[in-house]
Design a protein around this nucleic acid. Structure first.
Lengths: 146, 146
DNA sequence: TCTTGACCTAAAGTTAGGTTTATGTATTAA
DNA sequence: TTAATACATAAACCTAACTTTAGGTCAAGA
């Protein structure tokens, strides 16, 4: 059993955020002691791990709440839950692709400014055509500048 | 030269967003015709490509504005601009790592629910230890459940 | 006994990044 | 001439996800 302060440190999340998640129904009825103080157990800890991951995958609080509710409803929601994870898997894979594309452009720009700084100005590098670029830079450029 | 409606279609961005970016100073003084209508040129188009990419890399509007302002200040800001792209490169690489971690957990959950659905309930799969998992699943589990 | 620290609540406040609304202008097609 | 379209502005509005505030409880140590 853990207090809210301990969990806050474990996850590096503000106490106010944990109370907010609880209030929003993401933590499925946290136990309380006789004076109303939250006692988090291992199931809540596991729920928080899942929450962090679903948040990272782009899911909203209210959708996470819905999922957490399914978890309390037993086997009849197994399929829904699986389908939800499959959707989030696709979502996150798409997001990684988009980030990798943005990264290409950023790497091109790093090269561009490197060259410009060598010359003291952008005149030369601004006019370099893809053909004149080093191969690994050409690759970045062509992805992101059509 | 393009109208705001054309640019909106090119980038699949609402017209209101383009006007908002202009107002916030992300587009460095867009040209206007004699009756005040915006005429976007190729420099603005390129700026928009950079904006989309910087936004994807997690940069805020006001930081992008600052960068765009540096671009109007000539060669003395080349180093700042390069350093900015290097920071965003690191930021986006970190973000990709975190998404890949979340993806591991999600893949584990996909497997978990697959097994549960085969059995009709979670009883068996809930008690599978990492040692009993298929190797490619074990890998997902161990990253994300310690 | 007093004070410190960790917990509690409800309600108001905050922030970013737009979006919507109300109103107006200019051009074109019927 | 009228109606539809595409543009313009300023200002108000919106949403998600927290965070802060104001006020209170409770247990432990000096």
């Amino acid at each position: 059993m853990y207090t809210i302060g301990e969990v806050s440190k474990m996850f590096n999340l503000p106490i106010s955020t944990l109370r907010y998640y609880d209030k929003e129904g993401l933590l499925n009825d946290v136990d309380r002691d006789s004076s109303g103080i939250r006692k988090f157990n291992d199931k809540t800890i596991e729920a928080l791990r899942v929450i962090e991951c679903l948040k990272k995958s782009g899911m909203q609080i209210k959708e996470i709440k819905e999922f957490m509710h399914w978890c309390t409803m037993g086997d009849k929601t197994l399929l829904k839950r699986k389908e939800m994870f499959i959707r989030q898997k696709e979502h996150i894979e798409q997001e990684i692709k988009e980030l990798e594309n943005a990264l290409e452009m950023i790497k091109y720009k790093c090269w561009y400014y490197d060259e410009a700084i060598k010359d003291g100005n952008e005149k030369r590098v601004k006019n370099i055509t893809p053909k004149q670029m080093p191969d690994h830079i050409k690759k970045y450029f062509e992805h992101t500048h059509k």
